[in-house]
Design a protein around this nucleic acid. Structure first.
Lengths: 217, 217
DNA sequence: ACCTGAACACCGTTCAAGT
DNA sequence: ACCTGAACACCGTTCAAGT
């Protein structure tokens, strides 16, 4: 469609936009070419192959992570800042978080983040094995909180998302209440989130508290 | 190849075997047909489409979860049993865990597990919102521990896995040590796990401890 | 330097036809 | 009831050719 000059940047921009709107499956070489007003083969001049586009999309997420914490912050405040920073960055492109995950050690910003996180954990007094585990888990925690934010159906148009949720709700409503009383009682909380900030606060705390307890032991 | 009578069961068996050996991308309708000594279209008699195969693969994982805990177990012991049970089931087919994740509320065993977990958390005294979150997180925790077990390269042949790890190791070794000292120091722990049981013990505890702290607050 | 046409080897799926 | 042949609309990618 738009004829803005083709470039690696432009391709990745478009890929992110398509992914946000219609999910990762909609990101195809041919689709991107069409949106960019060009033949599919034109992309191969700017990019080695589709995987390189996917990788670049993942790298983008790390480029926007802000994990700074105020001077004098304790290690657990710093750890919370890391997870919250990742959460904020991931929420901008929920369907792309898996792309980002495998790029931590492959892009500059991912490496900086890893270095920072490992450093603060070692400084806190964690053993090496534990520091490595907790750093990995902080990234994964952000990833899974975003991908499963209750009520969010990333990669779907608003109408489609609404339909999917209605279907899930109906599926649960059809369950025998005597066998699944707890699912019935809590279905609302798993399918809808009235306070997104509270959701992230509680779950990030859950993680940081686990780490704090591990250090004490 | 083998000419065992075609059936839904046989198709899913084969799909799991292919996924385990070569990853999810290798699971195609045509490949399964070839392995089963039949034309691709034959599968469509036993199965609606490929998605149904993928769904059935996910369901299989839940069918093997053993989350029983001894009589009189405390809520946190029960929660640990749930996560450990999921971990054991997932480890049998690491590349299929994402398939399983989205099937919790769509298969009998997944529903039973969810019901059990929600029940024990409510019994422990968690508020509804928190019980829902922690139940979700217990499934996700098992999922991510298995998918990122250090040194495991699921869906790769042993040689390919070895090559991938060597490449990662080389990538980190090539990093400037003055900018990434912590990554250098801990790279070994992120790429290799000398004691897999200890890895799961520590990380499951990390999660359960977080929950315990949340209840106390 | 940058893009296209034509072609290749793959997908999943349908549908009429065979036994 | 169960399977096949032929066909369709998609993929990613290569490579020689155009400007």
């Amino acid at each position: 469609m738009a004829k803005a000059d083709l470039s690696r940047e432009a391709i990745v921009d478009r890929a992110l936009a398509v992914a946000d709107a219609e999910g990762l499956d909609a990101v195809t070489v041919r689709r991107l070419a069409q949106e960019l007003g060009v033949t599919p083969m034109a992309l191969y001049w700017h990019v080695k192959n589709k995987d390189e586009v996917l990788d670049a999309m993942g790298d983008r997420l790390f480029e926007t992570v802000d994990y700074a914490s105020p001077d004098g912050a304790t290690w657990d405040e710093q750890l919370r800042a890391v997870v919250r920073g990742l959460v904020e960055a991931f929420r901008a492109h929920p369907v792309c978080v898996d792309l980002a995950y495998r790029r931590v050690f492959e892009c500059e910003e991912g490496l900086q983040l890893a270095e920072h996180t490992l450093g603060l954990l070692r400084g806190a007094g964690f053993a090496d094995r534990q520091a490595a585990d907790i750093a990995t888990r902080s990234l994964q925690t952000a990833l899974m909180l975003v991908t499963s934010e209750p009520g969010a159906e990333p990669g779907s148009t608003p109408e489609a998302a609404h339909a999917k949720l209605a279907e899930k709700r109906a599926g649960i409503a059809a369950l025998p209440i005597d066998r699944f009383p707890n699912i019935h009682a809590l279905a609302g909380f798993m399918l809808y989130c009235d306070d997104v900030e509270a959701y992230y606060d509680f779950n990030v705390d859950l993680f940081v508290n686990g780490a704090r307890t591990a250090l004490a032991a």
